[in-house]
Design a protein around this nucleic acid. Structure first.
Length: 261
DNA sequence: CCGGATGTTCACCT
DNA sequence: GAGGTGAACATCCG
């Protein structure tokens, strides 16, 4: 599920744990720990800590701990999600409809009050790390400036979409958000990233930020206008033209051959 | 039954 | 060095 807008929802959930003390760390899946981190290491680093804040950079959720503790970094891959349970019956109702096996819990923090913040991920594509390297991520797409976007695209011969998906250039955009934003701007995802003129760049900048904000407001990265036509035979919601389906940047890409140039 | 899916990393090519 | 491709992870859905 997660692109940056979903991770922001998870961050708001994690924010509810601020002020709580971690009584126990559960790290049953060593494979899920990245950077050579072992279950013992993450447990000793985090147990006893009090959560003092949260942050997000692109799709990376950061949990700040008190004292001289490392920063806890959580990644959700394609199917990971964050759940806070043991605190209110509402929390359980929200997830009651989806399958939620205990075997999919890859990492969890159990607090003094019994509440449990857990990362459930069926496909194991997410990850837990300590002191993640923020320098490996570009500026966050939600708040990126025009200057930063210009710099992220400058001089590149890679397809525009591939460049926007590159987390080291722009952090947070995933396959759905990029297709939606480019569809809204009217730019061909295959255009060389460094070949936009200033007018196109300015429109792209506005629409990237607007697309992220609107997706968050509407409840997720799957709420875009293009979403319902992302299938073979789909047509452009704007002009009715048959959509083009290609692979760009390694990902299935839908675009309108008429108004995206 | 088969293909593809909201992500990332890595090995291997061109 | 820059890009591209395919594989891997494990499950669900059409």
């Amino acid at each position: 599920m997660p692109e940056m807008v979903e991770v922001e929802v998870y961050r708001l959930l994690a924010e509810r744990a601020v002020g709580r003390r971690v009584a126990k760390v559960e790290a049953p899946d060593a494979w899920f720990l990245k950077g050579g981190l072992s279950p013992d290491q993450v447990t000793s680093a985090v147990e006893g800590a009090t959560i003092v804040g949260t942050a997000r950079r692109g799709k990376l959720l950061l949990v700040h701990l008190d004292g001289h503790r490392p920063v806890l970094g959580l990644r959700f891959g394609m199917t990971g999600r964050l759940v806070l349970d043991g605190e209110s019956p509402i929390a359980q109702l929200i997830y009651a409809s989806d399958r939620d096996l205990a075997a999919w819990d890859r990492f969890a923090l159990v607090f003094d009050d019994g509440a449990r913040l857990r990362l459930s991920d069926p496909r194991r594509l997410g990850a837990v790390e300590l002191d993640p390297d923020l320098d490996a991520l570009g500026p966050d797409a939600w708040t990126i400036t025009l200057r930063q976007l210009r710099s992220a695209l400058a001089g590149s011969t890679a397809p525009l979409k591939a460049r926007l998906l590159d987390q080291s250039r722009v952090a947070g955009l995933g396959n759905l958000l990029v297709d939606e934003a480019l569809w809204r701007v009217g730019l061909d995802p295959a255009r060389p990233a460094g070949g936009l003129d200033e007018g196109e760049l300015a429109r792209l900048h506005r629409q990237v930020r607007a697309t992220v904000q609107r997706s968050f407001d509407r409840g997720g990265s799957h709420t875009g206008d293009l979403m319902g036509e992302r299938h073979r035979g789909g047509t452009c919601p704007r002009d009715g033209a048959p959509l083009l389906r290609r692979t760009i940047g390694g990902r299935t890409t839908y675009s309108c051959p008429v108004h995206q140039r």
